[in-house]
Design a protein around this nucleic acid. Structure first.
Lengths: 407, 407
DNA sequence: GTAATTTGTTACGTCGTTGAACAAATTGCC
DNA sequence: GGCAATTTGTTCAACGACGTAACAAATTAC
């Protein structure tokens, strides 16, 4: 009897090479489409014959499609046949659950929208919420994707999600503790449903995004500043999940353990200093608990404060700069802890990024240990790009492109 | 011309399966030796014939050796032939550089000591230090490993190390900034030299350690509390390095940005609350800067404070409990940020672990977000196991068992 | 002493990449 | 218009490596 658990060891079998290279082809086509078989062979440094076999099998599986031949190239010789991901064979649904208003997006398998975003009031009761979502999905599919299959529904929530059960463990801003929202949505829609924390989903979307410019190497972090503070960490090309799928909760790393009370119950969490609610409270010079959690139903919304700061209003500027400073200090903790290549920053705060960028970076420099690390790339993702919805779409679309268990 | 950099893509070639499985065999033998070919085949779920080929090739390469047949087993049938790592073909040297006293250990390729630890006074001048180390190494090799080759020298330092150049970027307790200590040691000894931060090296040693009991799955963190605070993070079976090889500096994540000044220049770093120096200062009721950096040349050493606390001395107990509480609060940040499976804790503080364990865990619970996460495993590594020296040894020994660039 | 059992080796089949040859398609040039 | 050059995509034999199964070796049970 073996003392070693065979399930923990993954050996290479006869089919492993094929599986690895199949995945690489799929990823390359997705990231660089349109692309020809010959280009793939060059990029992968394998014989063209191998690429032919791989590609034709993927075409048989309906994952890739051939497009037109390249008419633009000026070099002589036979024109290459372009390959594309077959993104329109199915659709995916992205749902962004937020405190007062939530959003639904219908997208193709590349995560590209196929219809406008639909907003609806967030219902706290899971069954009613699920019915509402299902109705919207049905209408969207009938209008914009009649007859097309649906890969599934990706839902992002501002809170922690248990990986094993997909239950929402704790979403303080929504008031949910240990709720199952997956089953209601799955039964109401009849579709597979993935639930994930919004920060991690945003990180996944960035990881998975098609970026022609960058080879997108290196570790990175996504910091989403909104009602709460969502953080997703990508290490070695994978989203960090941790033992209980709650890795990345930098929002509850303290700036000062003697600081203000946070929604999580602890004191001085970073989130308590930089959430939209904190910024609006600063602007209104009121205690935080007098401000609505989502900082929109308050007399002033976070968007208005950012606009005012942008326009030069001194009071708004002071509030925003204070938040910016705390944001930078907390980013320092992330940089010290993880030393990432780059940090993406999302949320309404980015609407006035040009007036706060210097404050953020100088606060960051105060706490970071080396000169090199202070020069970490800070990349802004504006709300218009709806990073959370893209993350929700990626939750469902990304697995559709990954063979089971390879790399 | 391909738009994709081929160097970033690693495809599977004809030899990839073999390379992967070769590495798995080597790792399994190292971790579970002695082990037979048949056991390997069962553990890996591959045919015995494949294992025969792999093992015999490794024996030809002198990496594995056959041992005796197992005479203990009671089952009937042919007795298995044991396989061992050929650990004695070469030796490795481990060096632990600390503030006042440093240590050298001669070990075999499994990281097992082959001679007693040699202590020497730390010299700050790199050349003199290198000469001193070289002399000790020569004596050790002549006495305990005559005629044997040496794989290299692993050096751990309490500070940040640049990966590309192996320069010590910043070791505040040693007073080193941007120093090259690798070249002097390499030229003085004529051996390959690896420099690494002590926290990361400790994590590597734990990752690489032979643990019959555990399959050692999951992510973990090593926290080494001494003059400073060294932290190493292991994610997905790899030590987290980050862009500049300075990932894991949780010691400089703040507990309170309004707290005491830290050696790094910032305020309220976790390290400033829990270093040995801070504990001794608390015991003596003196300002921290009146205490020697290494907390040994002071009127009272950290070991004495721990012993006094263990013995029931109220003043020592109070100081140690305060440190324990801060330790737990900081561990909370690590657990929130990374959600690891387990946390190893090293340093003199562990000498009184039984009296501080409850304090540490309850402080941890104050900040951690879920019940499940509060139950993270805390594993103590006592100073007698010299984790830093094992880490230094692993720096050189571990690469000797990894094929170039696989997994 | 023979049957049963386990280990380690060997031979053959299958899968997948390598490399080269070949057909197809297109441009440049006379 | 026609031929050479060039690039793309396919096909096929060769090689490497795992899977299966049969076999020899070694040991215990009965």
């Amino acid at each position: 009897m073996p003392r070693i658990d065979p399930s923990t060891v993954r050996v290479a079998t006869r089919g492993t090479s094929r599986a690895i290279n199949r995945q690489i082809v799929l990823d390359l086509v997705r990231a660089h489409q349109p692309i020809s078989r010959a280009d793939l062979a060059r990029a992968m440094n394998v014989a063209r014959g191998a690429v032919t076999t791989l590609v034709n099998r993927l075409i048989d599986e309906d994952l890739l499609v051939e497009g037109a031949t390249d008419s633009s190239t000026t070099q002589r010789g036979r024109k290459p046949t372009f390959l594309h991901v077959n993104a329109s064979r199915r659709v995916v649904v992205a749902v962004d659950l937020r405190v007062s208003e939530s959003y639904v997006l219908l997208a193709d398998l590349m995560g590209r929208p196929v219809a406008d975003v639909v907003a609806f009031e967030t219902l706290r009761e899971p069954r009613a919420l699920a019915r509402r979502i299902a109705k919207i999905i049905d209408a969207l599919r009938e209008a914009h994707a009649p007859g097309l299959g649906c890969e599934g529904v990706g839902v992002v929530v501002p809170g922690m999600v248990d990986r094993a059960t997909s239950r929402v463990i704790n979403a303080p801003t929504l008031g949910w503790k240990d709720r199952d929202i997956r089953t209601p949505i799955a039964t109401a829609t009849g579709l597979p449903v993935q639930i994930e924390n919004s920060g991690r989903a945003c990180a996944l979307a960035q990881l998975w995004a098609v970026r022609k410019e960058l080879p997108s190497r290196g570790d990175f972090v996504f910091v989403s500043v909104s009602d709460g503070l969502g953080v997703g960490v990508v290490v070695n090309g994978e989203v960090l999940r941790g033992r209980h799928n709650i890795a990345g909760e930098f929002g509850h790393v303290p700036l000062s353990i003697d600081g203000p009370i946070c929604a999580c119950g602890a004191t001085g969490c970073w989130e308590a200093y930089v959430s939209n609610r904190a910024t609006v409270a600063r602007y209104l010079r009121r205690p935080v608990d007098h401000i609505a959690v989502d900082a929109t139903t308050a007399p002033v919304s976070i968007a208005e404060v950012m606009a005012a700061a942008q326009a030069g209003d001194a009071r708004a500027m002071a509030a925003v700069q204070t938040t910016a400073r705390y944001l930078g200090l907390g980013l320092g903790s992330i940089v010290n802890a993880l030393d990432p290549d780059r940090v993406y920053i999302g949320g309404e705060l980015t609407l006035a990024w040009d007036v706060i960028a210097d404050t953020v970076r100088s606060a960051l420099s105060e706490r970071v240990l080396t000169q090199a690390a202070t020069r970490v790339e800070l990349l802004v993702v504006p709300p218009q790009e709806s990073p959370r919805l893209l993350g929700a779409a990626a939750l469902v679309a990304a697995p559709a492109f990954s063979s089971t268990g390879v790399a």
